[in-house]
């Protein structure tokens, strides 16, 4: 296969289309596993899910074919290193939310996020988290009686 051929497979629509095909196939398999439920005079419970999964699959096939036929740029990396590190930070934040005192969590998360995004100003790194924490505490907890996770 020539270099030209390789880049055909890396074209944007080809890659996205193939991902959709994969998703469609996986979802179709999952949809066929849905129980049929009680005997009733109507469409079985997996009809609409199957329409959607097969629809996804066909969209993927169509995009792939379009990508193969029409020359276009190769797909770029969807995420840069900063976004990736911030994504990891988000995930950690969401996972920790229920288990960590919200005041502590905000005081750690906000400056970490700012640092990753290139903020190097000390006053900002301190003021933003404290103000955010007090804002969430005042607004949600005090004003609107939302019970956020606390350790004490």
């Amino acid at each position: 296969m020539t270099a030209q051929g390789k880049s055909t497979l890396l074209r944007e629509d080809v890659v996205i289309g193939l991902v959709l095909v994969g998703l469609g196939v996986a979802a179709t398999i999952a949809a066929t596993g849905i129980a049929q439920g009680p005997q009733q005079r109507t469409l079985p419970p997996n009809t609409v899910p199957l329409i959607c999964t097969i629809g996804l699959l066909l969209c993927g096939v169509f995009l792939t074919i379009k990508g193969l036929l029409v020359p276009q740029k190769a797909i770029g990396l969807p995420i840069d290193s900063r976004q990736f590190s911030i994504l990891i930070l988000f995930i950690a934040f969401f996972l920790a939310f229920e288990h960590v005192d919200f005041r502590l969590l905000i005081l750690v998360f906000v400056p970490a996020c700012k640092l990753l995004m290139g903020c190097r100003s000390w006053p900002q790194l301190i003021i933003t988290p404290v103000v955010t924490m007090l804002g969430v505490w005042g607004f949600f907890v005090q004003l609107f009686k939302v019970f956020l996770p606390t350790w004490m």
Binding site: L107, W122, I126, V130, T150, M152
Partner: peptide, 19 residues
């Protein structure tokens, strides 16, 4: 406000809540 001050403040807050 320095970092130490902020830490002290939050520790006082924490202590009072624990009690």
């Amino acid at each position: 406000m320095s970092l130490t001050r902020a830490l002290q403040a939050s520790m006082v807050l924490a202590a009072s809540l624990t009690v």
